[in-house]
Amino acid sequence: MTRTVEHVLIIGGGFSGMAAAIELRKRAIAVDLVEVDPGWRSYGAGISLGGATLRAFGRLGILGEFLELGHCADGVGLYRSDGSLLGELPTPRLAGPDVPGGGAIMRPVLAAILARATRASGADVRLGCTFTSINSDADGVDVTFSDGATRRYDLVIGADGLYSAVRSTAFPEAPRPSYTGQGVWRAVVPKPANIKSAVMWIGPHLKAGVNPVSRDSMYLFIAEDRATNERIDESEFLPRLRSLLAQFSAPDLIAIGEQLNESSHIVFRPLEELLVGQPWFKDRIVLIGDTVHATTPHLASGACIGIEDAIVLAEECAGERSLHEMLQRFQARRWERCRMVVENSARLGEIEIAGGDKLEHAAIMRESLMKLAQPI
């Protein structure tokens, strides 16, 4: 019997798009993946990952390479801005009894791991290419590409990120990303011997943290309240980040500030969020990842829920139901989990900006991590 989905196009080569290619190929579904960036680059410093993400890496088959090239540890140490201990946030071991409950890695390193797995899966990867038109009918989707080629597919997956061209084309009524009132600074610094896992220092209106990304490096992050989303020139990055660190008296952060220099890979990103209402599919086009549920990093779960989307969608596409039933099942399995991450992350940011109830903040963190621990 011919399956409902035999040939899929994925538009976007980020984490969720690559994960979808890997999972669909496991089920012998033909995959074309197009990525507009000819260099298939991933920007940024480190990325923190929870146990649910590591569990998803196990499903993808990349957990071993992540453990070799990244860093894993249990728990998150919580401190006041002066360095005095507040407590520790436990991180359940969701990827297996021998795999710590959290970790971190450089974004470009993780992207390279996924890119190797995507190519090894047999997906047809075309870089420097995107779509120019998508026309869906009852039996398939005709896609014209920027290189002049035209191909027909059973399903098109939009995984082209926060400012998705697929979303704008197929879902013109969808909301646009919105600025949250915070920005995040990141940098890469040497890892001292006393930092063995993720650590955060919490001040009245600033939150700083570090997370090891390898045996000898860690990445620094600082969440800063910013009333307006204004561009910051790169020449200001180093002095501004040093100025923010100067607001903490914790010895570890003082030492980090002294180590920062022009080679510290400093990046700044205004925090934006997006939650597109149901459904995330129309005819033979479906959206996944940041394209429909971009979240702030407060729960360290943005990459997680995008990769989970890919896993669930591939599971549903392997069946023999009608395409509409498959996509409905995908939607039903993903909506509440993704909504929770986006909205709870947003609430954590609101509490931080307002200097609000720390007990509410802690309760939301605990509740969210418990829900993320549940199977997908």
Rank of each mutant, 00 (worst) to 15 (best):
V5T: 14
E6V: 05
E6Q: 15
G13P: 11
S16N: 06
G17C: 03
R27E: 03
V31N: 06
D37F: 00
S42G: 00
Y43V: 13
G61A: 07
G61Q: 09
F66V: 11
F66K: 07
R80E: 14
P92I: 03
A95E: 09
A95I: 11
V99C: 07
P100R: 07
R107C: 13
A111L: 02
L114R: 06
R116S: 08
A117M: 02
S121K: 06
G122D: 10
A123N: 09
D124T: 14
D124S: 14
L127R: 14
F131C: 05
S136N: 04
A149D: 13
I157P: 03
D160I: 08
L162F: 09
A170G: 01
A174Q: 03
G181C: 05
R186F: 10
K191S: 04
N194T: 13
S197V: 02
V199Q: 15
M200H: 04
L220T: 07
L220Q: 01
A227H: 09
R231T: 15
S235N: 11
L238Q: 02
R240H: 10
L245R: 04
L253Q: 07
P270D: 14
L274K: 12
L287S: 09
G302T: 09
I305P: 10
D309T: 09
A318I: 00
M326G: 15
A332E: 12
A332N: 13
R333K: 15
R334Q: 14
V342P: 06
A346W: 04
R347C: 03
E350G: 09
E352H: 12
A363S: 10
E367Y: 02
